[in-house]
Design a protein around this nucleic acid. Sequence first.
DNA 1: AGCACAATTCAACGCATGATGAAAAACGTG
DNA 2: CACGTTTTTCATCATGCGTTGAATTGTGCT
Lengths: 197, 197
Amino acid sequence: MSVRPSRGRRPGAPDTRADVLAAARASFAEKGFRGTTIRAVAAAAGVDPALVHHYFRTKDDLFVAALELPMDPRQLFAPVVAQGPDGAGERLLRTALSVWDDPAVQPQLLAVARSILSEDGGRLLKEGFLPVVIGPVLAALTRDRPEERVPLVATQVIGLIVARYVIAVPAVAELPAEDLVARVGPVLQHYLTGDLP
Amino acid sequence: MSVRPSRGRRPGAPDTRADVLAAARASFAEKGFRGTTIRAVAAAAGVDPALVHHYFRTKDDLFVAALELPMDPRQLFAPVVAQGPDGAGERLLRTALSVWDDPAVQPQLLAVARSILSEDGGRLLKEGFLPVVIGPVLAALTRDRPEERVPLVATQVIGLIVARYVIAVPAVAELPAEDLVARVGPVLQHYLTGDLP
DNA sequence: AGCACAATTCAACGCATGATGAAAAACGTG
DNA sequence: CACGTTTTTCATCATGCGTTGAATTGTGCT
């Protein structure tokens, strides 16, 4: 029984790079940037820490590589915007929940959310992502006074995301998506097009 | 001009312990537990790191010391609960915002929030603070089906807190508290006592 | 005045982390 | 089959962290 020598290339064609990236995504999603150590990522991928540096030069680079989304958010919300403000609350929420509930993207989204919420490096995202990509989408769903309505919508959506995915409050996390759409959707609709006192 | 010798006790009666605690509160509020280093706290207080350990034995102890609130949340919300569910949405929000906007307590609250949101150690708070102290208060403001209503209220309140104080989204953070009460209060009222689809 | 005690700093420890450079093993191409 | 390239590990470095123990200086009591 021949054992693999400790040093050098492994036999076969294992996609170690992808393993490392997956491990990094999981760790960034669960522990945030600071809480993630290169050594832990390497261990989770069954690999030497130096290999992580070989593929992704620095920890920052690994982070941005792990963040890459498989879709463009503006494109995702394009259908929602296309149908106009009527019923936008429920459509918006249904779309957002469907992508957040997709296990193929959830780690990336969670990593983004955690970095926006806590880490210093998230200032770029906080000042770039929210106003530049989310803001216009919401604004397009209002009929008037978007600068007053968008922040209100944002608070409710942010709260839902944070409670359901970041903190994972059981009472919110275990609810079927359609229940949330039915109950929170009308509130979003009210923020988008209802009377503002 | 006599200079203070580097070692030994300082002349006068400076409350260095309080300075350290204040610096710790500010740092925990802004950077969270992991992001706060004892050395940085000591530097901000103009003090040697060893002194921090002298007063608060370990970093964990310093954290719980920094967390201590000057009031009991249940007592704070007692008047809100006493007046019953009618108009509770606005009263609840007004009370919550008044304490969050109070600079004397905001650092502690932010530290709690940050630790709930991001750090691993926050699990104690997440599973103790939210269901044990906040939950009952909200439940007392409903007339029926609290187990369905409380989570909905929670999402909206959490979103408001996170947007206004943790992320500090300008459009939400700069709004006068009464504007928020007027616009979000009715939504909370709806979650508390309105029709649930 | 003397002395116990509190306050404060210095110097150092052990540890974990991000990063680097060289060496070894398998692969792919000619 | 030989040789350059890619993949992988090892050994190591410098840095920053939490923590500790001893040393020094002021305060307050008797």
